[in-house]
Design a protein around this nucleic acid. Structure first.
Lengths: 221, 221
DNA sequence: TGTACATCAGTGAACGCGCGTTCACTGATGTAC
DNA sequence: TGTACATCAGTGAACGCGCGTTCACTGATGTAC
């Protein structure tokens, strides 16, 4: 009797256990969106990839496990979709940070800072994107796709811009880009994998690290 | 009737399934050693941490699961013992590489190379040691213990030696050591997590990377 | 305006799996008398 | 030299758990006549 007619079933966030209102006809796709949101939130909250089980996601959305299969072929497919979303966010973060830079080298520095920052702010997502071994990743996650997904080529282009401007010592843009990727990945991954390590001040360590890299890139004087 | 009296039950490597000969009285500790070996081998062969289950280890040794509990309190305890062994090997690899260096900077370079090399040669072990999140690691794995286990302080000392010799620009030895750790970890972890990425020549990339770092460390000229 | 019907958005129960761990036991081995 | 016995090194069966996935179904919703 207290059954009010809500305009959309997406209205309230389900804590778990409570039953979700069935979607109107033709609005079945709304569930897909909610499933993705729940999976993402579950990942963030628990900080544990294992916690994102079909059953847990279904429960968080307020639906039964088989319903997941109405929108995703299997668990891998769901995880893939979650990853894809996060790659998009990740890209926006890095590209956005580089946007207002005064020169190509400063742009590179900003890209690095944004990369590290994103990883530290979204450790579990970062873990899935860059610290998980391939066979555990969704199947269609090819290297090419990955490279394009996280805007690797934009990164190479940013390096090339520095080369063109003579701001860094000559070399192969691709190789230099990989060096820099390895470097920022290193400090990000280390923080994430060892949060309890007695780190000195984080931001200071990051800034000095970036300077170390920039000095390493500097043209022979 | 074909039951020959072998001197030690450790004689043959069990492929799996075949039953292990019971140890003589007082020689129960031999099983402990075999369990550790089997767990390690399982990790190497499958390259999958999940594959190291109590049951799988027991089967590999040729014993029933409950027997594991005669020597290890629980699964965590077993994994911890495996980790500890590998930290020791890891340390020997790095320290051994640095041994014959002509000067402190060259020693640092060698340490870096050995670090990366060890990781690439033992990817699954490296993954457990440095790419696994704390709560999945054995419980008593404190940061202090970890720092001492993988000879972090030797690494700091190696940096200090370079500082003392004026071979690198002045700074805090601990912070510089962390920078270098982050850097070598980065390239190692990236290779391990993305073996299918279209990498250019590995060794060349590593050498250039090390040079980039050394240049970054160089004193202001 | 009323009703039969196809469709859509789910549900409920069950499948088989492998896991860590426990518990009561067995049977060979060495030792004391 | 023979035998009772404590001990040691395991075994066998079972526990409860959560997992991904399947399958036959239900019941609300919109549509055609």
């Amino acid at each position: 009797m207290t059954d009010q007619l809500a305009p959309s079933p997406t209205g309230s966030e389900e804590g778990g256990g409570s039953r979700r209102r069935r979607a109107r006809r033709g609005e079945g796709e709304l569930l897909r969106e909610d499933i993705l949101l729940a999976a993402e939130r579950l990942l963030m909250d628990t900080g544990d990839q294992e916690a994102v089980s079909i059953r847990a996601v279904a429960d968080a959305v307020g639906v039964t496990p088989p319903s997941i299969y109405l929108h995703f072929a299997d668990k891998q497919d769901l995880l893939f979709a979650v990853c894809e979303r996060h790659f998009e966010r990740f890209d926006r973060a890095v590209e956005g940070a580089a946007a207002g830079a005064s020169d190509p080298l400063e742009a590179l520095r900003r890209r690095g800072r944004a990369y590290i920052r994103f990883g530290l702010d979204n450790p579990e997502h970062y873990r899935i994107l860059f610290m998980t071994k391939p066979e555990r990743q969704p199947a269609m996650w090819t290297p090419e796709r990955m490279a394009s997904a996280f805007a690797f080529w934009n990164h190479v282009a940013a390096v090339q811009a520095c080369l063109d401007a003579g701001l860094i010592r000559p070399g192969d843009a691709m190789e230099i880009a990989l060096h820099l990727w390895a470097a920022v990945h290193g400090i990000t991954a280390l923080f994430i994998a060892n949060p309890d390590f007695p780190w000195p001040d984080r931001d200071r360590l990051i800034e000095q690290y970036l300077e170390l890299l920039v000095r390493g890139l500097a043209p022979a004087s």
